[in-house]
Design a protein around this nucleic acid. Structure first.
Length: 219
DNA sequence: CCCTGATTCGC
DNA sequence: GCGAATCAGG
């Protein structure tokens, strides 16, 4: 493989968007992330600053937070297929890469995760009256069990998700489903999952919640 | 161990 | 110019 104009352009685009070198390499095919990085430097666009820190931080296991206790899963296998039905399209289109690093994950930091109790079964879906494609949706945490901050960060993440298909899921990709499985607008988050967990940081914070937090929020 | 980008240097 | 190997770091 060689650096054709097209490939270079895709490289530039993805790098500008904040994609990691490995993701770019995967997309291009036939090159390693080293090749991508090398090319990036030779092109002189190494300075990726200027409001585009997107790349999923491949976070290292937080040492201080989350001691020994594991939070109780809200609905591990269940899918939050349609968090709220009125949502039209998750499509970010070709808009600005508008990003805010710090604000993107406030909820995760704000959840110390105390000792968990046995998880209660996921509550049945609230009567919203909207069933997009005829098929019943899987059980999912109701909206009033998710803190507004967490919800907001999740929505942000979903805009930035890699939108991968079932076949593209691996051990280390977030398996959080987005959209309605019965429609064309269905995909998986695909961002790097937390080590040992099926979801990325943001979705872990929704799926795994301490009982106390859930109790406090329940109505 | 997973990942990130940066640098070096033989080709 | 290219990119594997290596380095430094989260």
């Amino acid at each position: 493989m060689s650096w054709t104009d097209e490939r270079v352009e895709l490289l530039k685009k993805m790098w500008t968007e904040g994609q990691s070198a490995s993701q770019i390499a995967k997309e291009l095919g036939g090159v390693t992330r080293n090749a991508v990085i090398g090319k990036v430097h030779r092109l002189g666009l190494s300075n990726r600053v200027e409001g585009a820190p997107a790349a999923a931080p491949a976070a290292s296991p937080a040492p201080s937070a989350r001691p020994a206790a594991e939070p109780s899963p809200v609905a591990p296998a269940a899918a939050p297929a349609a968090m709220n039905a009125p949502r039209p399209e998750p499509e970010p289109a070709e808009t600005e890469p508008e990003l805010e690093p710090a604000a993107a994950r406030p909820a995760a930091a704000a959840r110390p995760a105390p000792a968990p109790q046995p998880a209660a079964p996921a509550p049945a879906m609230r009567k919203t009256g909207i069933v997009p494609a005829g098929q019943p949706l899987p059980p999912q945490p109701s909206l009033n069990e998710i803190s507004p901050e967490t919800l907001a960060s999740v929505r942000e993440v979903e805009k930035r998700s890699r939108k991968i298909s079932l076949m593209e899921l691996t051990e280390r990709t977030c398996k959080w489903p987005i959209g309605d499985p019965a429609t064309d607008h269905f995909y998986f988050c695909g961002l790097p999952s937390q080590p040992g967990k099926p979801y990325c940081e943001a979705h872990v914070s929704v799926a795994f919640q301490p009982m106390s937090a859930r109790r406090d929020r329940r109505r």
